[in-house]
Amino acid sequence: MNITATLLGQILTFAVLVWFIQHYLWEPLTTALADRQKKIADGLAAAERGEHEQELARKRAAEKIGEAKQQAAEIVAQAQKRASEIVEEAKDNARSEGERLLAAANVEIEQEANRAKEQLRGQVVSLAVAGAGRVLKKEVDPKAHQKLLADLVAQI
């Protein structure tokens, strides 16, 4: 139980072992650990950034939806206005068209009536002549009483 040259052997072993551990385990492993730490930190930062961006996007989306709703309301309002305008226009057109048709019909009626009157007059004259002929038992010559007949027609 005394100190022997084993001491030197163990010192040598120890020195070599420290060197080996430093080069093949400690340095690569601590580097890897630091890298992983950085990776995780980056990941967390990215996640936070992503959350923030999502929040922004949500706000933007809400704004856009609001705008869209407003625009839609405007468009609907315009469309309604335009529709009522069109209806008004159609009403006006219909009214004027009706009036026009009515006027034309009136004119035609008047013409028909006049024509009927003329016809009636002619027939009344011929009836009158025929009547007169029967009364006089004599044929009345319409040519001889042209003037008289014309007066009569004018009177009717």
Binding site: T4, G9, T13, L17, Y24, L25, L29
Partner: peptide, 27 residues
């Protein structure tokens, strides 16, 4: 002083070798 304890050195080396081997395998 100039005596070597072979068992001490042997097991010391074996265990150092085990340690180095695992470190190398992992590293």
């Amino acid at each position: 002083f100039w005596a070597f304890h072979v068992d001490t050195l042997l097991f010391g080396w074996l265990l150092a070798g085990l340690m180095a081997w695992i470190s190398f395998a992992v590293g």
